[in-house]
Amino acid sequence: MKRAIVLDFVKDNVLVREKIKKWLISIIRAVLLIGISYIILLPLITKFSNSFMSVRDLYDQTVKWIPRNITTEHYRLVWKHMKYPVTFFNTFLLTTVVSLLQLFSCTVIGYGLARFDFRGKNLIFALVILTLIVPPQMILIPLYLNFRFFDLYGLLPGTGFNLIGTYWPFILTSITGNGLKNGLFIYIMRQFFKGMPRELEEAGYIDGAGLFRAFFSIMLPGAIPGLVIIFLFSFVWQWNDYIFITLFMGGGAFLPQALELVANNVIIEITGGAAPTEMQGDQYTSLLNNTGMILVIAPLLILYAFMQRYFIESVERSGIVG
């Protein structure tokens, strides 16, 4: 009789301990997650609240997060000086073209490296990795010169065409999988296709599908999660890129360039060219920059919000494995 009670007590004790352990773990986890999320979201929140502050609030020590005098004046000024509708449209068009082309080319190349056995496969894969580890700055100027005097390396007559200021440098590098960070995309797609069962295509071939049919109607639909990742990355990086866009397009017709100049232009308008007063100093510059950054990032955040469901799902299924 006594023994049964002791046993019961031990059992209860174990149960209680298990419960406490579970509780502890989830509390610790929640604290960690909230802490990390805070650090990640902090710059976004700061920028956002900053962009609605009046200049008075900016220099008021008691105002930290919530602006006392909300104003949309900065947005009006920044919008105007970035020529937002025009630069947005330009950037959107170029980025969409580039990321669709890269999506296509990197998928095709990744599939080629994942599924076929042929001589030189490992060499080509090594070259893909090579394009990833060379700093883009190293080939910037030869690349510029080649597109400035584009004669297909002597194949075309004359001094060649000037492709600078057109979409061509972007189109040509994207369609061949040599654009910005494309090595990474090819790598991801290769891993992705490697994770898909070979039987899928085999069955297709037996049923009489050709190479392209097997790729487009059997493999591609199964690889949609991977495609989502590639498209999102490619879009984000192209949207934010200022190195290649400055090199190939010049001028200021795109968002990254407009963003870099906007604070300066706004201050010039306000002061009329005179030296900025203290109220228009560094903090004000930073406020204008923050407002501009919100305008640049906002479309990306909206895109991410739409795609995040597929994106998170694709993480589950992607199998980006060594």
């Binding site: 080319s105 095709v108 190349i109 599939y111 080629g112 490296l113 076929f116 496969k121 080509i124 070259l127 893909v128 090579l130 394009t131 060379v134 080939i139 690349l143 080649n146 297909l152 390396y153 040509l172 590098t173 369609i175 061949t176 999988g177 040599n178 090819i186 190479l211 790729f215």
Partner: peptide, 14 residues
Amino acid sequence: LFTLPFVVGFILFF
């Protein structure tokens, strides 16, 4: 066939 675009682009643009 599938890796040809990359090889061409690699030679020309890299």
